[in-house]
Design a binder for these strands. Structure first.
Length: 281
DNA sequence: AAACAGGCCTAAA
DNA sequence: TTTAGGCCTGTT
């Protein structure tokens, strides 16, 4: 990866495996939106940015220190995804899935935001998840003026912990409201230390997260993968169940993919969701 | 209109 | 330990 910094943006050159559409639309995040010119705008860790493709380069608005302090890490730019993809080609199906999904990168999202977002995701579809998350930010986040518009940060767990589920009514999250407040309180009251979880083992993180009401195996694994950035976490939802049963037998375990099983999961999920699977099968 | 959507909880075998 | 039914809400 190389980059050049200009007055108000950074241009990333010589990078493989970075496709904006695949990265933002593979289902791992909910706050990036594309306009008619293919420019994505979003907010992460309280900073708004625009990001777009120019030929084989990718540009991110902002100054060099923002790029170096935040975006480089957020987009996991120093990881060699093409080598990982190759290592995941354990069979013909994975060769197809990784080829199809080449360009996906796993974002290093804020831990609390990932927890809250994936609590919201349960039994929901993506448009509604995005709607609830945006409402949460609009109602309780901090306004950020950027490019002539107002965006909102994701509210901190300290803010949400002070609310009652009833006060979350405007975001229309339904039965998830009490889960959201409960998770925020667990953090603020010291029962859950997500920074510490990130330093510990996968098993201990899973156990700690599942103690929260509204967090089961699937949500916990999403949080571990996208929030704690443990790339062996392997969330299994209805789509993954389907695709696993179609391509593997009962003895399947994510261990066959090794330490990057979570990335394998994301390729499988994206491939399954695309509907391309059956076509070439 | 009834079923479903990227689960989870609780109660009951 | 596994399994059904219910859950907020919005969309089809």
């Amino acid at each position: 990866m190389r980059y050049n910094t200009y007055e108000n943006y950074t241009k990333i050159t010589a990078i493989s495996d970075f496709n904006l559409k695949k990265t933002f639309e593979c289902g791992q995040c909910f706050r990036w939106n594309v306009d008619e010119n293919g420019v994505y705008t979003g907010v992460a860790f309280g900073k708004a940015a625009k990001i777009w493709t120019e030929g084989t380069s990718i540009c991110i608005s902002g100054r060099e220190d923002d790029f170096l302090s935040y975006w480089r890490d957020y987009f996991d730019l120093d990881r060699d995804y093409s080598a990982i993809r190759e290592s995941l080609c354990v069979d013909n199906y994975m060769r197809k899935a990784t080829t199809f999904g080449a360009g996906i990168r796993i974002l290093r999202q804020n831990k609390w935001e990932a927890l809250c977002s994936f609590i919201i995701s349960q039994c929901n579809n993506i448009p509604r998840i995005k709607g609830i998350v945006e409402a949460l930010c609009r109602e309780f986040g901090e306004p950020i003026e950027f490019d002539g518009k107002i965006y909102y940060s994701f509210p901190g767990s300290d803010t949400i912990a002070k609310l009652t589920p009833e006060q979350l009514a405007p975001i229309r999250s339904g039965f998830r409201a009490s889960y959201i407040v409960g998770a925020a309180k667990a953090i603020e009251e010291g029962y859950l230390d997500m920074d510490a979880l990130a330093e510990g083992s996968y098993e201990s993180a899973l156990k700690a997260l599942k103690k929260l009401k509204g967090v089961g195996d699937k949500v916990a694994n999403c949080v571990i993968l996208f929030g704690l950035n443990m790339l062996n976490a392997f969330p299994v939802d209805v789509w993954m169940k389907r695709t696993i049963s179609e391509h593997y037998d009962k003895s399947f375990t994510p261990d066959v993919f090794g330490e990057y099983a979570g990335i394998a999961q994301q390729y499988m999920f994206y491939y399954a969701r695309s509907g391309q699977e059956e076509i070439g099968a």
